[in-house]
Simulated scan of single mutants.
Amino acid sequence: MNTPVDTHKVILPGATLGVLGGGQLGRMFAHAAQAMGYFTAVLDQDATSPAGLVSHHHVRTGYEDPQGLTELAQLCAAVTTEFENVPAGALNQLAASLPVSPAGASVAIAQDRAAEKAHFVKCGVPCAPYAVIESPEQLAAVNDALLPGILKTARMGYDGKGQIRVKTRAELVAGWEELGRVACVLEKMLPLAHECSVIVARGRDGTIVNLPVQRNLHRDGILAVTEVYEGNLPATQVEQAITAAKSVAIGLDYVGVLCVEFFVLDNGQLVVNEIAP
Rank of each mutant, 00 (worst) to 15 (best):
N92S: 01
V257Q: 10
L252G: 06
S97T: 07
C127A: 15
L25V: 06
G104S: 02
Q269M: 07
F29K: 02
Q34V: 05
V271N: 13
C184A: 13
T80Y: 05
E187Q: 09
A88F: 02
V42W: 08
Y254C: 01
A141G: 11
N92K: 01
C123E: 11
E239P: 07
G157D: 09
A15M: 03
D205N: 00
S135F: 08
F83S: 06
D46H: 06
H58S: 07
R165Q: 15
L72Q: 03
L186S: 15
V132G: 04
V213Y: 00
L72Y: 04
H31L: 13
K167N: 14
L151R: 13
A47N: 05
L258F: 05
P234N: 06
M36F: 12
A110W: 03
L172P: 04
Y158W: 13
D144S: 15
L75G: 05
L12Q: 04
C196H: 07
T81M: 04
C123F: 05
A170D: 14
C259S: 15
T7D: 08
V100D: 01
N267W: 09
P126G: 11
K161W: 10
V54K: 06
E137V: 11
L252Y: 07
Q67Y: 08
G268R: 08
T153C: 11
E177G: 05
A241N: 08
A88Q: 02
A249W: 04
L69N: 03
E171Q: 14
V248Q: 12
A170W: 04
S247E: 08
T153P: 06
A95H: 01
T48R: 07
T70V: 01
Y229W: 00
V107G: 01
V248E: 12
A183L: 14
A95M: 01
A276E: 15
Y63H: 11
V5P: 00
L25E: 04
T40S: 14
A78Y: 02
A35S: 12
A108Q: 13
A201I: 12
K246N: 04
A47L: 15
Q24W: 09
S106A: 09
P277E: 12
A170Q: 11
V198T: 11
L147I: 05
Y38G: 01
N2P: 15
D205Y: 03
A105S: 06
R165C: 11
E239G: 02
G23V: 06
V182I: 10
A78D: 00
A115L: 12
V209M: 01
V86P: 04
A193T: 13
V225R: 02
H58G: 07
E239D: 12
V257C: 09
E134M: 07
A51R: 04
E239L: 09
A174D: 15
F120S: 08
D266N: 15
H31E: 10
G26R: 10
G22H: 07
A241W: 05
E261R: 13
V264G: 02
L91T: 02
L53A: 08
L172Y: 03
K188Q: 15
W176S: 12
T226L: 02
A78E: 03
T168R: 10
C184F: 14
T153M: 11
G52M: 05
L146M: 15
G18H: 01
G231K: 00
S135D: 14
G251Q: 03
